[in-house]
Nucleic acid binder design. Structure first.
Lengths: 337, 337
DNA sequence: CATTCTGTTGACAGCGCTGGTACATTTGAT
DNA sequence: ATCAAATGTACCAGCGCTGTCAACAGAATG
């Protein structure tokens, strides 16, 4: 039977309430007592019972991580989870996962989820981080929440990185290699990632004095198949691009597949780059030049942000984390004509 | 304020205890009453407070999923998580994740984890599913556990699939294509996956009357880099293999990278196949022939198994789930000489 | 010196539920 | 009809903790 707060109190010669104060970081405990109680806690190997804490304190000490049920193993979410779990460690908080079912209304799912788990706070990732109805419902439920890469003004706590600048950086690198006709397989309309990455692409072209050619931008939906389709469209042009920037790694792989099918050498005949630095970027051949998205870090910061906003509900926090270009072998100078 | 059990009892005109019985599936409640109470539950939108339940019932309704902290985004674990969460849905149970820190003793980590979260049951995945010290500690802590793909006789509940047969199947397919010299990049020694996949490889050769050549088997550690190294070793031979079976997809990607570096066409000059069917298998070019490992299903079954073993601690359950060969473009007939 | 204030501590109730036990009702066997 | 056994129900305590509020000491103030 594990030690109870009562045992600690007896051991330290104080009341249970005082021990409770120490556990919860309440300020008005004399340093002497605090030290003595902490010693007793260690001596008895005491760990508070989370259920009792939750029940008495009317808090669940749960942070919900809501994400899209990944059809293909989304390393994005996995990395986020790692960061979130890391950040929860050492706090009394714990993470509960909820993958949204695509088949069901997100708001209804939130309602059900909250009824069952009663999280104290919620972390949302794209695309749901931009779902205003969802955010509104969370406000109504009086739940603190953090969004990741949402840039929504609706959201008090938002963790992201400068996707637009990152996209510009990677395209600028293609330009530096000598490319002038650079195609872009865009992301899913409506996703922030679509807008920002496309904007970055245009920024880089503009800065380099390359005229924006709308026909070099083809639609995609972040899927491998759409990358293949996009590459087909771009490579079928009279004046095919010498480089293609896909809005994520999966689509970049699709582009590589199509190049492969046409017998085009990468990067000799076609340079390809992606975005996200999912594990696949390192595994394909040649290695995929991409932008490393600091998912773990974002997960960590989201937890910290959301915990801070539990303490101070008025808190606002828009954080940008650093990203890094990840150059690999899929980009090179265009072939001389 | 959400409804409490008391409200439901009043609404249905019974005592709280009777409602509690219905909630917990206790048999001795008349059907009429049960129906009436269930109607009241729905009418009031009642959801039991998990903390109160845990506290009073001395159960946490938590299932711990313990896994190796994935260095590269392990889709294996991600898929498992999806399955586990699915299976928890509709039960009062919930999943808590714990990625093992490589730097710290697993047994100590278990102790700390259990002290903090007090899970009712544990699910272990390789390689920890085979850590006998760990299993022993779980027994001491009187925790039910399920292992995934462990084949440990220590474990009462084990979910797996016939890796040996699957490996044999995929090698047999290479043989059917006409390959005779088939290399194998093995997994990490000590992992079950190493042993079974190698055995399967040998089984297939034996069955086809091909003599086992030890020098065609090179060591690996499931990492991309070891796949590259393994391919180097195999392709440097006087009599290089015409096909390579890597013990997992990451290593198969390493093999493809090396083939690519040497200007070998896949599958024209070299056929490559892997194991696991991680997302990367579909994304590389050419698509990687591999064995689809039913992770979600195994996650689901592990939860069901472990819940059953909470009800009946003596229960034994060794389950095999079906796997499927996933043929793609990375394998073909060897070049005529 | 009395008075107020601040900082520190403890007594006690109760969070929402389940387990045990005592009691009520039904069922089956005689 | 009668009784024992089986089935179903009500009541109460208490799981381990925190919130409320009251008590008290010592410091600051008049």
């Amino acid at each position: 039977m594990p030690a109870r707060i009562e045992d600690v109190a007896a051991h330290a010669g104080v009341s249970t309430k005082t021990v409770s104060r120490v556990l919860n970081g309440h300020p008005s405990v004399r340093a002497v007592l605090r030290t003595r109680i902490e010693a007793s806690i260690r001596a008895l190997n005491y760990v508070p019972n989370p259920s009792a804490r939750s029940l008495a304190g009317n808090r669940s000490y749960l942070i919900a991580l809501l994400y899209d049920n990944p059809t293909s193993g989304s390393s994005y979410v996995m990395e986020l989870i790692v960061g979130v779990l890391q950040a929860c460690k050492g706090t009394p908080y714990n993470a509960v996962l909820h993958p949204f079912e695509a088949s069901d209304d997100p708001v209804a799912q939130i309602d059900r989820f909250v009824a069952h788990h009663r999280p104290d706070a919620v972390i949302l990732v794209p695309p749901h981080a931009n779902n205003l109805k969802l955010l509104q419902r969370l406000d109504e439920l009086d739940l603190r929440y953090a969004t990741i890469s949402s840039r929504s003004h609706q959201s008090r706590i938002d963790i992201g990185f400068d996707e637009r600048k990152a996209a510009a950086d990677i395209v600028r690198q293609l330009i530096a290699l000598g490319h002038r006709r650079i195609g872009h397989v865009a992301g899913l309309k409506g996703h922030g990632a679509h807008v920002w990455r496309l904007s970055g692409y245009r920024d880089a072209l503009r800065k380099a004095g390359i005229e924006y050619d709308e026909s070099l931008v083809v639609p995609g939906d972040f899927s491998f198949a759409s990358g293949v389709a996009g590459a087909k469209a771009l490579l079928d042009r009279r004046n095919a691009p010498t480089a293609i920037f896909a809005a994520n790694d999966d689509m970049a792989c699709g582009v590589m597949r199509e190049a492969h099918a046409r017998g085009l050498a990468i990067p000799g005949d076609l340079s390809v780059c992606g975005f996200d630095d999912t594990p696949v970027a390192m595994l394909v051949s040649p290695g995929l030049t991409t932008v490393h998205q600091p998912c773990r870090e974002m997960g960590r910061l989201a937890v910290e942000g959301v915990l801070a906003s539990i303490r101070d509900p008025a808190l606002q926090l828009q954080t940008h984390v650093p990203y890094a270009l990840q150059p690999r072998a899929s980009t090179g100078a265009p072939a001389k004509r």
